[in-house]
């Protein structure tokens, strides 16, 4: 059974000066799946993330989002990053971008920003609605931290966490924005084997809760165990797509990897 498409990328192209980082890329993400993006360094994977999340405006092509429960599709090209987040797409960053001088809990609470409303007057007068909202933010954030295994460190500064814990905190912060599509940029980078195992469990759990996941990762074991489908990129193009076992035996993929690296 094919589930519905939630993100459709067609003919996506991104030029930086003379360099073409993405070249007429086509693929789609379906509801509830884990789609892995793999490819050698510099293949354009993070650039793709930046295009989808509104940090770059693509030079050509379309990024279409089909929100659950919303009839019309949304064109993401050129939307501001915060609007993309409001539409239900959240991400983590390859080179961790936490608010390092805020506590772990506060980091996640900031993620609740786009789903809450209190403003100047609410902040100053703290009416009942604001207090209830604030209470809910704290509780929901704490629940998310328990989920990623950081409940013991809620009051620590994010910058003082270990590398692996910071990566998990980034996931919790992204989840706080209530995304239906989660973009993870190398979540296992810098983790030790035990941490990676826990991460695999965590990502699986997030998928089971109904979030679709688009994943960039270099750890092939992780990619092969977790993903439902894989898209392989090289020089900004898609060179292969399919289930893990199909991709594993694809000649072009082997050439891109082995030809480059060994």
């Amino acid at each position: 059974m094919m589930s519905e498409t939630i993100l459709q990328v067609t003919g996506l192209t991104m030029d930086f000066g003379g360099i073409r980082a993405l070249d007429t890329l086509d693929f789609e993400v379906r509801a509830g799946e884990i789609l892995a993006l793999i490819g050698p360094n510099g293949a354009g994977k993070t650039t793709l993330f930046n295009c989808v999340t509104g940090i770059y405006t693509p030079s050509g092509g379309d990024i279409l989002l089909y929100q659950p429960g919303v009839r019309a599709r949304t064109r993401l090209n050129g939307l501001k990053p915060n609007h993309v987040a409001e539409k239900g797409v959240a991400r983590t960053f390859q080179n961790i971008r936490l608010f390092s001088k805020m506590t772990v809990l506060e980091n996640v609470m900031v993620g609740r920003h786009c789903r809450t409303k209190a403003f100047i007057l609410g902040a100053v007068f703290r009416d009942r609605k604001t207090r209830a909202e604030e209470q809910a933010i704290v509780e929901q954030s704490y629940a998310l931290l328990k989920e990623v295994g950081l409940a013991a460190q809620v009051n620590e500064l994010a910058g003082n966490l270990s590398y692996g814990a910071q990566r998990r905190l980034e996931i919790a912060r992204a989840l706080a924005t209530e995304p239906f599509l989660l973009l993870l940029d190398e979540p296992a980078a810098g983790m030790n084997p035990q941490e990676t195992i826990r991460l695999v469990q965590l990502i699986g759990k997030i998928r089971d809760q109904g979030h679709a996941i688009l994943l960039i990762e270099h750890d092939m074991k992780l990619v092969m165990t977790l993903s439902d489908r894989i898209v392989v990129m090289d020089y900004g193009r898609k060179i292969a797509e399919g289930a893990p076992e199909e991709v594993r035996s694809n000649k072009e993929v082997i050439r891109a990897y082995l030809g480059e690296e060994g």
Partner: peptide, 8 residues
């Protein structure tokens, strides 16, 4: 950048 990605 992280802020914007969180919807701020």
């Amino acid at each position: 950048i992280a802020c914007q990605a969180m919807g701020i």
